[in-house]
Design a protein around this nucleic acid. Structure first.
Length: 956
RNA sequence: AGUCGAUUAGCUCAGUUGGUUAGAGCGCCGCCUUGACAUGGCGGAGGUCAGCAGUUCAAAUCUGCUAUCGACUACCA
């Protein structure tokens, strides 16, 4: 083994070896256990959040695999409709100055496939660097033919089940990208705007209760008034109730519109009158439905004002008997320009009552960054209510469990108020909707044009055109768990690996994806195998493990525009400052931010980033995987865990140095186990049990902490040190040395297996060296059995004895440190007030003590023996005495003892207080009282000894 | 406005059903290059667990209120 730990040297080869030897594929035996990767965007690259989640999935997968499960980690990527289309559009614009329309639909999608072939490998190579043990042989892409078949089938069946419909509805329209987006892709931002109060004159000389000839409506979007089809007032409102049924003459336009009564108008708010624009506002649309108002669309798909309005009945059918003219001066205006023009027109007409500053939420498209416009368009929808019902039940009855549980609230609150889901997108990249129209506008849904003709008896003379739209990407990713495994065929793979065990994802996509996956899966996957419950819906996964979001060192969300994104590979390989700056400031959407980002980067990473290796990165991620919602990335933690890897490396180095080529007892030769051997074996069982429990509970932070503690603070700090006096003692019996070597090797070998799911590379590297010494077989640690605690090896006596030994040694070290006695100076030590247990332990551990505490003489005083004046430490009731003569400063020792006495006094007082409280003694459980009594006893004894000692030294 | 979450050492975070002397890593102070490891070793300092009130023999932990921060949902005509 190399003398120093160099992660890049060991990480480069193992992955290839594993992959080439097929160790990532399901073994085909054992209980099936599967995880479906949340498919990352094919044209993207992995960020820290992916690294985090993928590391977790890999640990769980490797753990299950070592436990003997038939383990599948299904991998794949998502076509990410809008995002990918935009990337390629930008690319052809930058390189060729062309738009997608210059290309045409087919050529453009070919271009995207080209781009995918070029850049689609980024993700997969990153996954490989992370050590992800995914089953590459079954890798899926959501645009692959097989997957498309599943998507198409789902669409058709939902349509046939009357769960998909098409209609002219108000949707969130992105005027820049020219597509509908779901309300989840809308980002509401707080903005400062205005509230314009507009006068709407009453028709036919009517007057308000206050005698005015107009009413006042307030709006934040005055331009929509061109499409007003009514004004709502509250039926109870004394000011206006007499006007209900009367008309308004819509200013600028001249259309007569009715005053209607609707609960939406709140007497307390604003003026009490609400302009109603059913074609441009979601609330107004509801009012329109209730009051039978028509809809007039006044905007183009660009968000500009139309030449003439477009009228519809509230059900979406065209309406022709209404004035839809738009004053000439506004025609063709861009929407915000139109707003200004409308406001000044009102002002000129003397109809602008007032303008107030107003803060409001404005919807922005999270992809395009432009203001979203509610717009009437023809779209396809999924009726979600019937699908949501079983999906809610599955979580209520525990078929699906969220971890941490609190996320179930989030799920329920959304699911119980779910809206129909608009699934059509006006894009070119995605799954084309399997619907055809004839020239009469009849719609036919089927698998192909040929099937349409056959099914509906349409001759070749009937012209059919396929719907131009594609499906929302989340529609297809909703099928991920079963669509990847051959559905709609009932394949062996589907039967074996569905439902999956756990979904690991972030809370930010619970609505987007998790909920929809549950709905879709439960509708289509039925349990045909269970006789007692035939047709029971299958859930996609039994657990949803929701991770926190990784933020930067200041708690800010990582984003390209902030320039605080960290690339997991830079954590692994390291990167120099200049390259990091270039990377962060290059290819930006908003180049004006570059300077700020550069400054910040130079400050935070003055020396660039040092290489840390995959294992250290992964371990850091596990240690941060607590139940919180936010995780602030801390480079110092990463450094700490790189040091941990180094520690392991060096420990292995020590073990190998002392065991290679020597008799390690692999053939069941006689061994003598020392107390230290029994102790570390015992502790190993405990940590094995802890880790198993914590992994099963998805508490990888605890599991990694357990392992860290055991390796560093028990195995390295104590056991390796305790092995030295045995191995270096020329007089020690061979059986004892053999026992120590065997324990060194066996425990380390178990540690490697235990740690492998967390740090795959270093453990494989070391395990391969250790294997012959430990007498174990196997091609790779990946398929070696995961350690299981053996209760019979727990040795409470050995544990207590070693605790005693540690106290003893720590006591001596403490005296050395406090008294400035160097660690290499041998000491003479006396013991006073020794019990039988102390004497036995002394007898069994003399050589450990002499060596670890660097003693040259150790004498247990008998009752009545005179002790020299000494510095004292207590180990239980035994006093450890280090003679002061020539070594120890009297005043220092007095000061030290004073501190001890003071501390003990406080303790005694606290315990006495508790025990003299009648209520406590009367009500607390006996065991608690006993514990307190024992603590008081210990503190009193210690105090007595310290006081005695203090008096003696003072008397000198 | 509603829902949920957070507030523990200088920093980043653990703390499972109430019962410890409230823990870890990093940082800090002192000592040490001893034959696995200075990416190390040894010793140490540092916390009225956001605040207030309550329940209890006992509260970081349970309840209520307050403050600060955050997320989401809704509304603002």
């Amino acid at each position: 083994m190399e003398k120093t730990y160099n992660p890049s040297a060991i990480e480069s080869t193992w992955y290839k070896t594993w992959e080439e030897n097929g160790h990532f594929a399901p073994s085909g035996s054992g209980t099936p256990d599967s995880i479906m990767i949340p498919p990352p965007n094919v044209t993207g690259s992995l960020h820290m959040g992916h690294a985090f989640q993928d590391s977790i999935m890999d640990a769980l997968t490797r753990y299950k695999r070592m436990k003997g499960n038939n383990t599948l980690w299904q991998v794949g990527t998502d076509h990410a409709g809008i995002a990918t289309q935009m990337v390629v559009e930008r690319k052809i614009m930058a390189e060729e100055g062309k738009t997608r329309h210059d290309y045409g639909r087919e050529a453009f999608t070919d271009k995207i496939w080209e781009w995918k072939a070029e850049s689609g490998g980024t993700i997969t190579s990153q996954l490989r660097r992370l050590g992800a043990s995914v089953d590459w042989d079954s890798e899926r892409f959501t645009m692959d033919d097989g997957f498309y078949k599943a998507v198409q089938e789902v669409f058709i069946r939902l349509y046939e089940d009357d769960l998909i419909y098409r209609g002219k509805r108000l949707v969130n329209w992105d005027p820049k990208l020219h597509t509908a987006i779901s309300d989840l892709e809308v980002e509401n931002k707080d903005k400062q705007g205005h509230m314009w109060h507009l006068r709407y004159p009453l028709a036919d000389g009517e007057k308000t209760g206050e005698g005015k000839d107009h009413i006042v409506v307030a709006t934040t979007r005055p331009e929509t008034m061109l499409g007003d089809t009514g004004v709502a007032v509250n039926a109870e409102d004394p000011r206006y109730k007499d006007l209900i049924g009367k008309d308004i003459v819509l200013p600028l336009v001249g259309r007569r519109i009715p005053i209607v009564a609707d609960e939406h108008a709140d007497m307390e708010k604003g003026t009490g009158c609400v302009k109603i624009t059913p074609a441009h506002d979601f609330n107004d649309n509801e009012v329109g439905k209730r009051c039978g108002l028509p809809m007039i669309n006044i905007m183009t798909l660009n968000g500009d004002i139309r030449e003439e309005g477009e009228a519809f009945h509230i059900d979406g059918s065209p309406k022709s008997d209404i004035d839809v003219s738009i004053p000439e001066q506004f025609r063709g205006l861009e929407r915000f320009e139109a707003r200004r023009a409308i406001v000044s027109a009102f002002e000129e007409a003397g109809l602008l009552e007032k303008i107030e500053d107003h803060s409001l939420m404005v919807p922005y498209g999270d992809r395009s960054g432009v203001v979203i416009e509610p717009l009437l368009t023809d779209q396809w929808f999924v009726k979600t209510a019937p699908l949501a019902e079983p999906a809610i039940k599955a979580v209520e009855n525990g078929d699906i469990q969220f971890v941490p549980k609190q996320y179930e609230n989030m799920y329920f609150s959304w699911m119980r108020d779910i809206q129909d889901w608009c699934i059509s997108r006006q894009l070119w990249w995605g799954h084309r909707i399997p619907a055809w129209y004839d020239n009469e506008g009849n719609v036919y849904v089927a698998r192909s044009e040929a099937e349409v003709r056959e099914k509906h008896g349409l001759g070749a003379d009937v012209e059919l055109n396929q719907d131009a739209d594609v499906l929302d990407t989340w529609f297809s990713s909703g099928l991920w768990t079963f669509g990847t495994q051959g559905w709609p065929e009932n394949t062996e793979r589907l039967k074996t690996f569905h439902p999956s065990d756990v979904l690991v994802t972030g809370f930010d996509i619970i609505f987007f994806w998790v909920a929809r996956m549950i709905m879709m899966t439960m509708h289509f996957m039925k349990d045909d195998t269970s006789p007692e419950n035939p047709g029971k819906p299958q859930v996609p996964f039994k657990h949803v493990y929701v991770t926190g979001l990784i933020r930067d060192e200041n708690g800010d969300k990582m984003s390209k525009s902030k320039g605080n994104v960290l690339d997991p590979l830079d954590m692994i390989d390291g990167i120099d400052l200049e390259s990091l700056v270039t990377k962060r400031t290059g290819n930006m959407m908003q180049p004006q931010l570059a300077q700020k980002i550069e400054k910040r980067t130079r400050k935070t990473f003055a020396d660039g980033i040092a290489p840390h290796g995959t294992d250290a990165l992964r371990y850091t991620l596990y240690s941060l995987a607590s139940t919180g919602r936010d995780i602030n990335w801390d480079m110092k933690r990463l450094e700490g865990y790189r040091n941990f890897c180094n520690k392991i490396w060096n420990a292995a180095n020590y073990v190998l140095m002392n065991t290679e080529g020597q008799d390690c007892g692999i053939n069941d030769e006689d061994v003598e186990l020392t107390l230290a051997d029994k102790w570390i074996i015992s502790k190993l069982q405990r940590v094995e049990a802890q880790i198993e429990k914590n992994i099963d509970d998805f508490r990888l932070d605890h599991a990694s902490q357990n392992l860290y503690d055991f390796v560093w603070n028990e195995y390295c700090a104590w056991y390796l040190e305790l092995s030295k006096p045995v191995l270096w003692d020329e007089d020690a019996p061979e059986a004892r040395k053999r026992g120590t070597r065997r324990t060194l090797v066996r425990v380390l070998e178990a540690i490697m297996r235990m740690a492998h799911p967390f740090m795959p590379y270093i453990t494989e590297e070391i395990w391969q060296q250790l294997k012959p010494l430990a007498g174990v077989e196997g091609e790779t640690i990946m398929t070696a059995p995961y350690p299981v605690a053996d209760e019979s090896k727990i040795d409470a006596q050995a544990e207590e004895d070693i605790e005693w030994l540690k106290d003893f040694i720590t006591g001596i070290r403490n005296i050395r440190a406090e008294m400035n006695i160097g660690p290499s100076k041998p000491l003479e030590v006396f013991l006073r007030n020794t019990s039988e247990d102390d004497l036995r332990r002394l007898e069994e551990n003399t050589s450990f003590l002499m060596s670890l505490a660097k003693l040259d003489n150790l004498t247990a005083l008998k009752e009545g023996d005179e002790a020299p004046m000494s510095a004292t430490q207590l180990v239980g009731e035994m006093e450890v005495l280090v003679p002061m003569a020539g070594l120890i400063d009297k005043d220092k020792e007095i000061a030290r003892l004073n501190r001890e006495v003071e501390k003990l006094n406080k303790e005694v007082a606290r315990f006495e207080g508790k025990l003299s409280n009648e209520k406590f003694v009367g009500k607390a459980p006996a065991a608690v009282i006993e514990k307190e009594k024992a603590k008081l006893e210990d503190a009193r004894t210690a105090l007595g000894k310290m006081e005695e000692q203090l008096a003696a030294i003072k008397a000198l």
